[in-house]
Simulated assay, not measured.
Amino acid sequence: MALIQRRRLLAWLASCSAGSAAALPVASLAQDGRFPQRTITLWVPWPAGGATDLTMRLLAELASHKLGQRVVVENRSGAGGTLVMPVLQQAAPDGYTIAQLPQPVLRAPHVQKVLWDPIRDTTPILQLTGVTFGIVVPAASELRSVEDLFAWARSRPGELTLATNGVGTTPHVVMDDLFGRRSLTYTHVPYKGTAEQMLAVSAGQVMVGVNSNGFAPYVDSGKLRLLATFGGQRTQRWPQVPTLKELGHGIVASSPYGLVGPRGLPAEVVQVLHDAFRSALNDPAHVAELAKYDQTVDYLGPDDYGRSMREAYAAEKRTVERLGLARGGSGG
């Protein structure tokens, strides 16, 4: 009997060795304190060198110290920040592939047909922060207010060139709303990243840029003029700049974002990742990095973040339907 038990034990050990520790259930690895055992890849859907990319790289570095394994950032830009979804769909739910989830991911399925669902195909880990959106023009531009944009578009239909970070992104949706209410048109120029867009605007290649916090260095250096921001109140960094809300447009947009994993990520693995990234999120070095782009910590845990994602997904559907952006959008 003892011989049979010994043979069974040896066979079990051999099967574990052949498959390595990766063959063990992910939940067991987490429970035994052995997750992670190798490098974690964090996908960022924006080009390298932009504001979000830089803050995410610091966050990944700080989280690495807590996890005891490297967190490597990979960029997959384009399609308005939605290209992380196919990556997550194809990834194993083992915690080694995670991604930043920007607001356009919650909007895109209502605008065009996609093969993924942002709620069904993700596991929320935590919400991190939101962004400050704004409208900028070259420093030498004659356009000095949001009303000036409307006046130009009214006098020269379709001639106003306006850049955003992609079709269906928050800047694009907001500008479509503003111009559509007034039956005005503009020429939309989408860019893959903030840095590329800001260079184009500051060089006068396009007349107006609408994007997130990456415009900060250009505004602070005097290369660009900030006409308005999209937050609920004026920013501490540019207190002289009005918000769209106070200008009477009734729009507040901050596009909060966070980290998610693939569908089916075990709760134990979520907890390990959550704890490490929450610690990194609140690290003074990361808080200071966010402040460079007028961002603050806007933390939500897995359950609350999941609830917020579902609410935002439903709200985006209503917005898309109201603006008539479904299946390709309107003329903006």
Rank of each mutant, 00 (worst) to 15 (best):
K113Q: 10
V114S: 11
W116M: 05
W116Q: 03
D117K: 06
P118I: 06
R120V: 12
R120I: 08
D121R: 09
D121K: 10
D121H: 12
T122M: 04
T122S: 07
T122N: 04
T123V: 06
T123H: 03
I125D: 01
L126E: 08
Q127T: 04
L128T: 09
T129F: 10
T129Q: 07
V131R: 06
V131M: 11
T132W: 00
T132K: 08
T132H: 01
T132I: 08
F133I: 06
F133S: 05
I135T: 08
V136D: 07
V137A: 04
P138K: 02
P138G: 03
A140L: 04
A140T: 14
S141Y: 11
E142R: 15
E142A: 12
S145E: 09
S145T: 15
S145R: 09
E147N: 10
D148V: 02
D148A: 12
L149G: 04
F150V: 04
F150H: 07
A151Q: 14
W152F: 15
R154T: 12
S155Y: 00
S155F: 05
R156P: 11
R156G: 06
P157G: 07
L160F: 09
T161M: 03
L162Q: 06
L162T: 08
A163G: 13
A163H: 09
N165Q: 13
N165P: 02
G168V: 00
T169N: 06
T169H: 01
T170P: 06
T170D: 11
P171S: 02
M175D: 00
M175P: 01
D176C: 13
D177L: 10
D177M: 09
D177F: 05
F179Q: 13
G180W: 08
G180I: 11
G180Q: 12
R181S: 12
R182F: 13
S183A: 15
S183P: 00
L184G: 13
L184R: 12
L184S: 06
Y186K: 11
Y186P: 10
H188R: 03
H188M: 05
V189W: 11
V189D: 10
V189C: 09
P190M: 08
K192I: 14
T194R: 00
T194P: 00
T194W: 01
A195D: 13
Q197Y: 01
Q197T: 09
M198G: 00
L199C: 00
A200Q: 07
A200I: 06
V201Y: 03
V201A: 07
S202G: 11
G204N: 13
V206N: 13
V206Q: 12
M207W: 05
M207E: 15
V208E: 09
V208M: 05
V208A: 04
G209F: 01
G209T: 07
V210D: 05
V210C: 15
V210Y: 10
V210L: 10
V210G: 07
N211L: 15
S212M: 10
S212K: 07
G214K: 10
F215G: 04
P217W: 11
P217D: 01
Y218M: 12
Y218K: 00
V219Y: 05
D220C: 08
D220H: 09
S221T: 08
S221P: 02
L224K: 01
R225N: 14
L227Q: 04
T229V: 12
